[in-house]
Simulated assay, not measured.
Amino acid sequence: MNPLQLIQGSFEKEDALDLITELVQVKIRYHENKIGRSENEEDIERREGRIRQLQMDLAKLREEFNQQSNRIAIQSNIEIA
């Protein structure tokens, strides 16, 4: 199956951070919705851990962006295996 190309290009630093933040927020909302419908404690804990990891990764990325030039190149693909 061919990969789905989500993002490819060069963006102003603020636009790049906005775009990535929105993508991460969608993933966090996905896990929050699954938590709201789950009764399995193990599944809930796993999803809560993933949310925390996504939040930490985004915070680190924000710090790294402060060190970058004004334009950021982003390439994002989804590959189905």
Rank of each mutant, 00 (worst) to 15 (best):
M1S: 14
M1A: 14
N2Q: 07
N2H: 00
P3Q: 10
P3R: 14
L4A: 08
L4E: 11
L4Y: 10
L4M: 14
L6S: 00
I7Y: 01
Q8C: 10
Q8V: 05
G9Y: 03
G9A: 03
G9N: 03
G9T: 04
S10P: 00
F11V: 10
F11L: 06
K13N: 10
K13I: 08
K13F: 06
E14R: 13
E14T: 14
D15T: 07
D15A: 15
A16P: 03
L19C: 02
T21E: 13
T21H: 03
T21A: 06
E22I: 11
L23G: 07
V24N: 05
V26A: 13
K27S: 15
K27W: 01
R29Q: 13
H31Q: 08
E32L: 09
N33K: 14
N33S: 09
N33H: 10
K34Y: 00
I35S: 00
G36H: 06
S38A: 14
N40C: 05
N40T: 01
N40P: 01
E41K: 09
E41T: 13
E41Q: 13
E42K: 04
E42M: 03
E42T: 04
D43T: 07
I44A: 01
I44W: 02
E45V: 02
R46P: 00
R46K: 14
E48M: 06
E48S: 00
G49D: 06
G49H: 01
I51P: 04
R52G: 10
R52C: 06
Q53M: 08
Q53A: 15
L54R: 05
L54G: 02
D57N: 10
D57S: 09
A59M: 10
K60P: 01
L61T: 11
L61D: 01
R62F: 00
R62S: 04
R62V: 09
E64P: 01
F65W: 05
F65P: 07
N66R: 12
N66L: 14
Q67G: 11
Q67M: 12
Q68A: 15
Q68D: 09
S69Y: 04
N70L: 09
R71V: 12
R71N: 14
R71F: 13
R71S: 07
I72W: 08
I72N: 06
A73S: 15
I74N: 02
Q75K: 11
S76P: 00
S76W: 12
N77M: 10
N77C: 06
I78T: 08
E79W: 01
I80H: 05
I80C: 04
A81L: 06
